[in-house]
Amino acid sequence: MPRRSAEEWIRLSLRTPGILIFGMVLSPCGWILDLTATVAPNWRTLNNIPNTPSTEYIEQGIWDICRTTTSSERKECNLQDTTYFNHEIIEIAQGLMVASLIVTLIGLAVAIPGVRCWRDRPNWLLAGLGGLLIFLSGVMTIIPIAWYTHILNDIASVSPTIDVRVGYCIILGYIGGIFEILAGFVMFIGICRCCGGKNRGERRVDEVMGPRFAQKPPPRPIDVPRLDRPRSIASSVPYSRDSMDDDVSFPRAKSPAVPSANTSYGGRPYDADL
């Protein structure tokens, strides 16, 4: 059976996979919308306030309260309402919205190194971990937004006859939270290869190159001679002195004669011969 390994999957291009592009585009958009919903004082509006002109209404957020008129751009902020700010949902919304903004930035910081498109393949573990953090930040945004909307009319106001309406911060918060949830989920599914590898932009080797490339051919055996094997008689050459003398005769060089002393003429060596 062919060995199953990571080399059976290949990427046809070095482009960043679509799921990572989708997540990296939606995440900053959701963060900007959540930031606007956090700092803007328009979670709900109070209309038809008694003893005030019909053109005036009050905008209430989680950090500030402003009085605005429809006829001009004049806005008076920093209004005090102890009953409103002491409500449980206000404190929870302040903590979760700020935490959501911080977690989104951390998720982007973790995901960006894993989404590097100049490498052969992204670091799916880092990208998936960043996507998980972004997903959690979206959940932390939706919780206070949905809770605030559910008890919109139950939060204490100046008069029970006031017309309470949803502010634009609620709508921006919903959209931003949904963006982050979708972006984080799509990036997280990149950890597991699914849909035939299409989520990663990968395909099997046998689908691209054919079944003959799916398995590497076995290595060719190489016969390495051993030193301890018996030596063949036919291939061995005896190098003995007797055989060399029998087969080939080499002439020997004559050694020079040893000069002898001349003992003639009385044994005097200094007499030269004539």
Rank of each mutant, 00 (worst) to 15 (best):
C29T: 12
C29S: 12
C29L: 15
G30D: 00
W31N: 06
I32P: 06
I32T: 11
L33Y: 01
D34M: 05
T36C: 03
A37W: 01
T38H: 01
T38V: 02
V39R: 00
V39F: 01
P41Q: 04
N42L: 06
N42A: 10
W43D: 01
W43G: 00
W43H: 01
R44F: 02
R44T: 01
R44N: 04
L46E: 06
N47P: 04
I49E: 01
P50H: 02
N51V: 06
N51W: 08
T52V: 13
T52R: 15
T52Q: 15
T52I: 13
T55I: 15
E56G: 09
E56T: 13
Y57W: 11
Y57K: 04
I58K: 08
I58Q: 09
E59P: 01
E59L: 03
E59C: 07
G61F: 00
I62R: 00
I62T: 00
I65D: 00
C66N: 00
R67P: 05
R67I: 07
T68A: 06
S71W: 11
S71N: 15
E73F: 13
R74L: 11
K75Q: 10
C77A: 12
N78Y: 10
N78I: 08
L79C: 11
Q80Y: 10
Q80V: 10
Q80E: 11
Q80L: 12
T82F: 13
T82M: 15
T83K: 14
Y84R: 08
Y84M: 10
F85L: 04
N86D: 10
H87K: 09
E88T: 14
I89T: 09
I89Q: 11
I89G: 08
I89W: 09
I90C: 07
I90Y: 09
I90G: 07
E91H: 15
I92K: 15
I92Q: 14
A93K: 06
A93S: 14
Q94N: 10
L96T: 01
L96K: 03
M97C: 14
A99H: 06
S100T: 04
S100V: 03
S100C: 04
L101M: 07
L101Y: 01
I102H: 09
V103Y: 01
V103H: 01
T104C: 05
L105Q: 08
L105E: 05
I106W: 05
I106N: 01
A109W: 03
A109Y: 05
A111L: 03
P113I: 02
V115Y: 08
C117I: 12
W118L: 11
R119S: 12
D120N: 14
P122I: 09
P122Q: 14
W124N: 05
L125S: 13
L125E: 14
L126R: 14
A127R: 07
G131W: 03
G131Y: 03
L132A: 07
L132K: 02
L133V: 04
I134S: 08
L136K: 02
L136I: 14
S137V: 02
G138I: 03
G138Y: 05
I143W: 09
P144W: 07
P144V: 03
A146C: 07
W147S: 08
W147G: 08
Y148K: 14
H150C: 09
I151G: 11
I151T: 13
L152M: 09
